[in-house]
Design a protein around this nucleic acid. Sequence first.
DNA 1: CCCCAATAGTTGATATAGTCAACTATACGC
DNA 2: GCGTATAGTTGACTATATCAACTATTGGGG
Lengths: 144, 144
Amino acid sequence: MPQTSLSSALFTLAQSYRVTVREAINANELGLNALHVRCLHIIAETQHCTANDIVAKTGRDKAQIARLVKELIKLELVSKCADENDKRCLILSFTDQGNALFSRLEVAEQEVDAKLCHGLTDQQVRDFIAIATTMIENINHNTP
Amino acid sequence: MPQTSLSSALFTLAQSYRVTVREAINANELGLNALHVRCLHIIAETQHCTANDIVAKTGRDKAQIARLVKELIKLELVSKCADENDKRCLILSFTDQGNALFSRLEVAEQEVDAKLCHGLTDQQVRDFIAIATTMIENINHNTP
DNA sequence: CCCCAATAGTTGATATAGTCAACTATACGC
DNA sequence: GCGTATAGTTGACTATATCAACTATTGGGG
């Protein structure tokens, strides 16, 4: 069935994406969900990453992030250690296991992305991301 | 912060969208969530709409839809009545209240959409929807 | 130096959303 | 009529998300 409106396209896509990522991830027996994956990405790309950084970048509730991080630590993918200068800050970093898993994860993600972008040109994908980014900014900034 | 990858753009957008719709809807004191809204749209645009139609169009679990519809009925926005030819099918239609609310809803949605699309051309929005639709098809169909 | 507002993180309680499986009632082919 | 498929409902459960209260630390005035 064709999607006509912006809202239904977005909504359907988000739902489908969530399901697909979950399948891909379950298939890879990693035992993680899409938000775990986002956290891992953020930890990977943020030097000196704290829970608060994740909250800021995801826009999620800090309680949710706290529990998520706790799970990652219990899975021994991530470890935390207090910042020397500010002991309130707990810096998150990958364990060896975490690094290994993250590599596998990147492969799995590329597969999902490839599937998602099947039949689309690179330019279309770039445009899509650019427009999505604009929309995100529109939502976040113009909130009068 | 800039969104670079497809997955994070999608994920962030879906999240932001959900929050914004919820705000818009709460602000309008309608007491409905985004899925309620989708259901109302589907009921509006589908002649002879059944719960099953909603399941098909949303891809959600039928249990979830059953409960959602029950809520809409309790709110007296929608009524259901058995099909004469097939009494298993319960056809959903708006009550007068439902019609009135749906009109208000359309206005609220247009505002969200307008905000979302601020600074984008009509062509960009059309392209965006088209690409999103392709992605949805990619996910749903090529599932080998 | 000590108090205090601000910040980082944790936790409990609760709400919302999504999933699975079993069940009822009707319909249709044979 | 009988089995089977279909529409919808329900219960039990899991996962996600949110709110508010709490601890521990920090840095800045007085």
